[in-house]
Design a binder for these strands. Structure first.
Lengths: 139, 139
DNA sequence: CTTTCTACTTGTTTTTTACAAGTAGTTGCA
DNA sequence: TGCAACTACTTGTAAAAAACAAGTAGAAAG
């Protein structure tokens, strides 16, 4: 740790070019498996993905689980610590909605659709939904 | 640009270990000069700082200005684009407040003091304050 | 006129990332 | 039952970025 500043704390955990994108995939695109993360638009390298998934588990953002029907598959699920990044991701999306002029509107809308009606409610609902899908799910 | 996703857009602009810390210094610690950024707790290297400040200006987060009484000094000020990162930084601080168990409380309080009373008002006031100090200031 | 301060630059080592290929265990199907 | 395809990775190497150390030109102070 370079300092005891709360902003630096966060930056050291997910302040890189890939970590938040993996969390995005878990939150917004319902991805759960290695190959799914690997096939994201940004084309993460397989060694970097493996490294980040290990770090994410070590830092308590996700937990690995075994898929019962596919024994070779490993399922990645968010923890509460990871789910609570939702407000942060929403603020990022709102900022990008404002300043990302060249971004396609439909992509911004995809994330912000409910948020535009009522941010507080939308965030709350999304978190509850993720809680059901990730935390309450069987190991 | 690796993709047209709004979250990736943001990550490519400030998803590294230093950029948000410089913006933090501008927002919360009223830093304006090269030496001030350089003397932050996290000990950024001078070449990295120069690189990030250039990028921040190029990407429209800050603008460089000349200080009238000290001609050798260059003053860095936030633009509106930079100031509008406040809600994002606040969400980061709130998350770190929750999960950064080893962080000193007084540091978390420093940023979140007003936020705990009323987040919306605190954010609005901070943005207005920064607008006065940075945007409305003479060139 | 010299020392100190300013915002940097330059050069080198170390670390990280990207790219390409390979591997052990699992599953689907003939 | 056997083989091809699929799974989550690992390994090796080249390229890029970061960290570290030193230096520089111009301005200000004494």
């Amino acid at each position: 740790m370079r300092s005891d500043c709360p902003l630096n704390f966060a930056v050291e955990l997910f302040g890189d070019k890939w970590t938040l994108l993996i969390i995005r995939d878990l939150i917004f695109f319902d991805k759960r498996y290695y190959q799914e993360f690997l096939s994201s638009q940004e084309k993460i390298s397989t060694n970097i993905l493996a490294d980040r998934l290990t770090a994410l588990e070590k830092n308590g953002f996700v937990r690995k689980g075994r898929d019962d029907r596919h024994k070779q598959k490993i399922i990645y699920r968010l923890t509460e610590k990871g789910i609570n990044l939702v407000p942060l991701l929403i603020e990022i999306a709102l900022w990008s909605d404002k300043y990302g002029e060249n971004l396609p509107q439909y992509k911004k809308d995809f994330i912000l659709k409910e948020v535009r009606k009522d941010k507080t409610i939308a965030v709350k609902k999304l978190i509850e939904d993720l809680h059901k899908k990730h935390v309450q799910a069987p190991v």
